[in-house]
Amino acid sequence: MEHEKHHIVSYTSHLWIWVILLVFTVITVGVAEIDLQKLTVVVALAVATVKAVIVGAYFMHLKFDNKMLTIMASLVLLIFTVFLTITLIDYALR
């Protein structure tokens, strides 16, 4: 039986990732209190995306696993972004 070498992420690195995610949560709630007009949603989604990438890379091990998984996940996200963009363009130009 052959086993792939697994990267073991240290406990402290998980804790740090958790702290960073909490900081981003504080930022996103804090920024929402400030009135940035149309920028509010952009900032909220940008922060959410940073959090999502951190969760994917570290908690979901994408950074340490076979790169094929990262490529697959990126493709799915790309497809979704294309759906979203095309639909938005369609509604914006009606």
Partner: peptide, 9 residues
Amino acid sequence: LTSSMTVAV
């Protein structure tokens, strides 16, 4: 977020 961290640990 905390529960995600505990699963990862």
